[in-house]
Amino acid sequence: MTSTSTASSASPATRPPEAGAGKVPAPRRRRALSRARRAALPFGSLLLFLAGWQLLAASGTWSQTLVPPPAKVWDAFVDVSTTHDGVRGYNGTYLVEHLGISLRRIAFGAGIGIAAGVVFGLLMGTVGWLRSLFEPWITFLRTLPPLAYFSLLIIWLGINEEPKITLLAVAAFPPVAVSTTTAVAAVPSSLVEAARALGASRWDVVKDVVVPSALPETLTGVRLAVGVAYSSLVAAELVNGLPGIGGMVKDAANYNNTPVVLVGIIAIGVSGLVIDGLLLRLERAVVPWRGRV
């Protein structure tokens, strides 16, 4: 009797832990492992790329002027990012300043092209004759490489900022216009008819039915447009592009300064990845239902 009452009155602290206590729940552990795997794969691929690059540079197959080792590119990155031997960055401008000026050009140019593409896409998707009128011209413009009309823009607009901004706007316009037009045309007619049956005006149908339905594809077009604008950046800065990251790449290439060229290319690529990631987060926040319905 005494032993029974003693066992029953034992404090919780002295009781043996229950099975599974203190363990991380299986779903949470799986999510943590999945996140770690997603982070490790890009890092591992980067290490493999750097190792292959170093082996290629050390093999002597090409001279270091053509394929400089990673350490030499790092030294060039430090040089263009700081003041060295009395020289401020590259051509008197730091790398971050070159990049900032180019990003400002992309923001203005691509912003104009994206806004125009959304407006034209909505109009062409809702008005049939406008689509028949403008779609061949947009397709024609989409197939042209930027260098094909950049010289014409210089003749028309000079060598200052105007041709650069215009080139980036023209390059960003077609992807958004095409994706928005396709998305608007694909809006289910049953939704439009239901909204009209409930007394919605034409503007209400566009605002409350067409735009939300087309928004996911439109945002995909925006991501494509920003990518096209980035791919056109060096072309936009071929003439009078300094300061600017594309102008820096072009100027360094004139002097066979391969490390600086690679620094500029890496800066463009990394900044493009960051901006695309931000746009992807924006897309998930604005259209969280995408892929779930």
Rank of each mutant, 00 (worst) to 15 (best):
M1V: 09
A10W: 04
R15V: 12
R15H: 12
P16K: 05
P16Q: 10
E18P: 00
G22T: 05
P25T: 13
A26M: 09
R29M: 14
A32G: 12
L46H: 11
L47C: 15
L48G: 00
A51F: 12
W53N: 04
Q54V: 05
A57G: 05
S59C: 07
G60D: 13
W62Y: 15
W62F: 15
V67N: 05
P69I: 11
P70H: 07
A71D: 13
S81P: 07
G89Y: 09
Y90F: 15
N91S: 10
F108V: 15
I112Q: 10
I114L: 09
I114G: 02
T126Y: 02
F134L: 12
L141N: 01
A148Q: 13
L153G: 00
W156Y: 01
L157E: 04
E161H: 11
E161P: 04
E161C: 07
V170I: 15
V192H: 04
L198I: 07
V211M: 06
T218K: 10
G221W: 01
A225H: 01
A225S: 12
G227L: 00
S231Y: 00
V234G: 02
I245A: 00
I245D: 01
V249E: 04
K250C: 02
K250Q: 11
N254E: 14
V270A: 11
G272Q: 08
G277C: 08
L282M: 11
A285I: 06
